[in-house]
Nucleic acid binder design. Structure first.
Lengths: 195, 195
DNA sequence: CTTTTGTTTAACAAATTTGTCAAACTCAAA
DNA sequence: TTTGAGTTTGACAAATTTGTTAAACAAAAG
């Protein structure tokens, strides 16, 4: 079966990603996705057979995209501090665009409990943890369990985006003001990690 | 209408909270809630009229419970550092029990966009921000936008619980090991905040 | 014991969401 | 222009989830 590529398949997938990751509509219906994409709902079935398959594809790509982005940073050969600064920049840029992507990954992991076991590709994580540990030995970093360091780093980067609606209310800020606050965090996180 | 109080109404509500906040089943169906509670599904309608009303009640109580817990800490008269240490202890204890509560609040806020405006009771937040600013002036705290400090604090406390399933896989840890890691974080967060 | 009132249950109806199918359509190739 | 493969659409069927009703049940009141 050849294809004419009207771009519809990609449009549906992109729209789904936008609803899930950017707007946080974690359980959007096929009708909502189709409406947002401006196409007939049936096309979701035509291109993806079922809602679940669309979800699975989006989920898979989300996970891969996330991992890829991080791998590029992790694998680059540069001094530790540079690498972290780079990570912060890249991560915050990505998260600003898709603040709910991790959330989606997490809630989907909750639904498919069975797959929690297999995925584990901890090699690169192990490698990064080793790098962190070495930096601690060198004295460039406060000594602690490297996993705690990683948790700190990702918490500081990701959480303010997840909780944006909450904090906008609490702080009485509009979208633009909050975006500025997030931009300022890049430097701040760096300074918090490296006092 | 008087009541005989068989405890069923409370049981349903508690079960819903457990599914939502502890297990992260953010969009559990009434049947799933009833099953988990071991009661007939119809009772959900008998006691709460509709699924939405149950959701709203649970959401409201979640929000109030969360705010109450924090208020007690914020309003206590004690030195700043003590207050923070107290906050960390209380918050982590609560979050360990209900790791997805904030998540629920956030995703529900996304659904009812209209109510984002009204809720704002920023008085206590303002007060706490002022307290943070004073502590910075005194030199007990690195100078920064108080909002950033608050974001840091809550990110460090909350996010590792939200992302627990993800990090258990990445670090290859079981539930117990991860719980220990979380317990250790209390002290670590304190030291990160007050270098 | 009977009645009354509140609770629980099962069967049914309504609403929502998803999946299927055939017909209509579009565009490139023959 | 005609054909044909892929695409889009609307109508319909199936599945899932929610809401309603009447009858069965349980416990306190009379």
């Amino acid at each position: 079966m050849s294809t004419r590529d009207t771009g519809t398949e990609q449009l549906i997938k992109d729209t789904a990603k936008h609803l899930f990751f950017a707007e946080g509509k974690l359980h959007a219906t096929t009708q909502e996705i189709a409406d947002a994409a401006g196409v007939n709902r049936t096309l979701v079935n035509y291109y993806f057979r079922s809602r679940d398959i669309l979800f699975d594809q989006v989920f898979k790509e989300a996970q891969e995209g996330f991992v890829c982005t991080l791998d590029e940073v992790f694998e680059s050969k540069m001094p530790f501090k540079e690498k972290i600064r780079n990570l912060i920049t890249v991560f915050i840029k990505e998260t600003a665009q898709y603040p709910f992507r991790q959330l989606f990954i997490i809630t989907e992991m909750n639904r498919h409990v069975e797959m929690q076991a297999k995925k584990a590709s901890p090699k690169k994580v192990q490698l990064f943890m080793k790098e962190v540990a070495e930096e601690m030995d060198k004295g460039g970093l406060k000594k602690m369990d490297p996993r705690q360091f990683i948790l700190n780093l990702f918490s500081l980067m990701a959480h303010p985006f997840l909780t944006a609606p909450l904090h906008k209310v609490l702080f009485g800020m509009n979208d633009e003001e909050y975006a500025t606050l997030m931009e300022d965090r890049k430097q701040l996180i760096y300074e918090t990690i490296f006092p």
